[in-house]
């Protein structure tokens, strides 16, 4: 579905998509990461924007397989920044982005392999001093350095935002699904390797990594007696009745509120 995105800029819109190595949840096989692939899809749907894919990582065999997955979407090349396995990719990505100077950077909300903290876009935005937007559902238009985007909120809600470029935006599963990856373009596509000094992630070297356990789910307590109430309870998403909307508060007040909530929930003791 080609979007009608008006690009009134004199220069062609340039979009960089940061892609990572995905991992199938059942078999653990390397693949294109779902959220990153959606980011590529969103970039490709921007009409005549020039799209550049970048990946920073150790360039192993799994990396090759995963990158072919992105190339198969009709991408001619992926720029692969080779890093040591224990490197922190943020400095390398920041360097390359500063040099390439795209107007918009798209990426998945979090990686499927490695740390998977979802912090890379924030750290990059901090380093580069760019705006960061999370959970993009659609890019409506990009005009004169300002992008109008729809941000996905829980329960299918959307919020229209105007973002001054350059910006970094993350994409999650509320964005349109990625197109099929085809064998021919995947085989022809180029993996352009380039070297960049690795900065070892000192913190991570001290961590112990173990497979994640399934998080316990909060039980829904349905007190109602009537079928209608039970149906409503079943259809409703588990939502927090006692939420609190904080507007125009200082960062300290906000942090205090979050801290209190975490204590209440038993996350912090």
């Amino acid at each position: 579905m080609p979007h009608n995105v008006n690009t009134l800029n004199d220069a062609e819109l340039s979009v960089a998509v940061l892609v990572s190595v995905g991992r199938h949840p059942l078999t653990g096989r390397a693949r294109r990461a779902d959220h990153d692939a959606r980011a590529v899809e969103m970039a490709l749907s921007l009409g005549d924007a020039s799209v550049q894919l970048m990946h920073a990582g150790d360039g192993g065999e799994a990396c090759g397989d995963a990158m072919r997955g992105y190339l198969g979407m009709g991408i001619s090349r992926v720029k692969r920044i080779n890093q040591d396995p224990d490197a922190d990719v943020v400095p390398a990505l920041a360097n390359i982005l500063r040099f390439a100077a795209p107007q918009l950077v798209l990426t998945g909300t979090r990686a499927e392999t490695g740390e998977g903290s979802g912090l890379v876009p924030y750290l990059l935005a901090e380093t580069l001093g760019w705006t960061v937007v999370s959970g993009l559902a659609e890019i409506e238009s990009i005009e004169q350095g300002v992008a109008t985007v729809l941000q996905a909120l829980p329960r299918g809600k959307r919020r229209r935002l105007k973002v001054r470029l350059p910006a970094i935006a993350t994409v999650d599963s509320s964005a349109p699904a990625a197109r099929q990856s085809a064998f021919g373009p995947a085989r022809r596509g180029e993996l352009a390797d380039c070297a960049c000094a690795s900065v070892t992630d000192e913190l991570q070297t001290q961590w112990r990594v173990q497979p994640a356990r399934k998080r316990p789910k909060r039980l829904k307590i349905v007190k109602s007696a009537s079928a209608r109430d039970r149906f409503k309870a079943a259809a409703a998403k588990a939502d927090s009745g006692g939420g609190q909307l904080l507007n125009d508060v200082t960062p300290e007040q906000g942090a205090e509120a979050i801290f209190t909530l975490l204590k209440e929930e038993g996350v912090l003791r």
Partner: peptide, 17 residues
């Protein structure tokens, strides 16, 4: 259509994945 264009219709892409 499948290998070059990636245009397997409906559930095709999902099944191949």
């Amino acid at each position: 259509l499948t290998l070059e264009r990636g245009k397997t219709p409906n559930k095709g892409a999902e099944v191949l994945d």
